[in-house]
Every structure is written in structure tokens, then in C-alpha cells.
Amino acid sequence: MHPTTVEAHDTYPTATEKIIGDKTRPVPTYDKHLYVIPPGKQRAGRFPVDTSRSSLETDVLERKLSATTLLGRYRNPGSGRHALAVPYQGGDKTLLMHPDSLFSHEDGDDIVMDIIDPHRHDLADAAPKWSALARYTQDHADRVRRVLAFKITDGELRALDLTANGIAEKMQTASKDLLEALFASGGFSY
């Protein structure tokens, strides 16, 4: 058996509520996160993730949490010392992207990690970011099993494994149309 809970001598700041208009609303919480709300507090043992801006992220998170091989997950912050940051080229600048989530799975006798980035494929920076993630995975193949990007096509959640052969190179200069073609030819129902 592999441990899925560790005692962290650090904190991971995140909001458990948000203000919408003049009302305060709780942020939804989910299981199996590395950091959790401490015992004695409301929703203890869970971790808040504000998915209100992306139904795509909610769908992916709920499906990943239902996997029987899932040991734990980490909601990657958008910056800071707790974040996995992957460099990518944005024009003539080197920028950092922060994939949404890391999921640890049991795979036979091994523990493997999946990187998940459920963002809009039609944004100008999607292809360079996903290309960088694919290269990151190639460089860390001993630690990362795969990287999945997602989109919704005709109401169906589709995934594209960015570690598939040749995808990193195609992503390097991909347009929105090429991304559509890659999801159509290499994507799968999730």
C-alpha cells in the first residue's frame, strides 16, 4: 500500500469562499488533494477548487476523481513556490505556464503522474503551452505518464494525449485549425 496522506509543515493558501455581488458563496471542495482543510474546520479533509469559470475543468476533475487507481491529486497554483511551472515560448519571450492539476495513480507496482490541463484550445497560447507540456513529459518520462488536454466537441468531452508520438512537434506551431484536426484524429472520448 502506498501512502496518500503526508503531514506538510507548510500551508497552501486558497479561498474557501468567494463573493458574488453582495453574497458570499462557498467554493466547491473535492477529495484526495495533497493539502486539505484541517480537522475541526468546515469541510475538513477536502480541498476547495473554484471551477466556476470552466465547466470543462469540473467535468475533468470529477472524472479523474472517479478513477479506481487514483491515489491523490494536487491543484497546481497559478504561481509561487508551490507551483509546477513549465517554460514555453510566447513570441520572442520565454514565459511560464502552470498546468491545472497533477494526479498520482497506481499503475501495477509503480506510482505514475498524469498532468491535466483542461483549458480552451482556441486561445492563442494553447498550442505553445501544450507543446511545452509535451516536451516536459518527454524530459521527465520516468516521473510523468502522460499529459492530457481537453475540449468539448458536439457536447462530448474529448482528450488529446500530448505525449503521443509527434504531438509535441506538431503543437509547436499549431493554429486553432490544426488543434481541431489533432483532436479529431488523435483525440479520444473521455
Rank of each mutant, 00 (worst) to 15 (best):
79 S>F: 11
44 A>W: 06
4 T>Y: 01
108 G>F: 11
14 T>R: 09
43 R>F: 10
157 L>T: 12
65 L>R: 03
186 G>R: 13
88 Y>F: 13
157 L>V: 11
164 A>Q: 05
80 G>E: 09
26 P>S: 12
66 S>W: 08
57 E>W: 01
173 T>W: 10
34 L>F: 09
106 E>P: 02
92 D>Q: 13
41 K>E: 15
171 M>R: 02
44 A>T: 06
187 G>T: 10
179 L>D: 00
109 D>N: 15
69 T>F: 08
122 D>P: 01
189 S>C: 15
48 P>L: 02
127 A>F: 09
31 D>N: 07
163 T>Y: 03
33 H>N: 07
115 I>H: 00
112 V>W: 01
62 E>S: 07
110 D>K: 15
51 T>W: 10
126 A>K: 00
163 T>G: 07
14 T>N: 02
92 D>Y: 04
32 K>V: 00
115 I>A: 03
119 H>S: 12
130 W>D: 07
129 K>F: 02
160 L>D: 03
20 I>R: 14
94 T>H: 01
80 G>D: 10
141 A>K: 08
23 K>E: 13
174 A>T: 06
131 S>I: 01
62 E>A: 06
115 I>W: 01
154 D>Y: 05
125 D>T: 15
45 G>D: 04
49 V>P: 00
5 T>A: 12
173 T>K: 10
67 A>K: 15
168 A>P: 00
117 D>W: 00
183 F>N: 07
5 T>E: 11
70 L>I: 04
128 P>N: 08
140 H>R: 03
55 S>E: 14
184 A>Q: 11
188 F>Y: 09
9 H>V: 01
4 T>R: 10
159 A>Q: 04
97 M>I: 10
89 Q>D: 12
110 D>Y: 12
172 Q>R: 09
122 D>W: 10
108 G>Q: 11
25 R>S: 11
168 A>H: 00
71 L>T: 02
21 G>S: 09
30 Y>M: 00
77 P>G: 08
21 G>P: 03
15 A>L: 14
159 A>V: 03
124 A>E: 13
69 T>L: 05
43 R>V: 03
53 R>L: 08
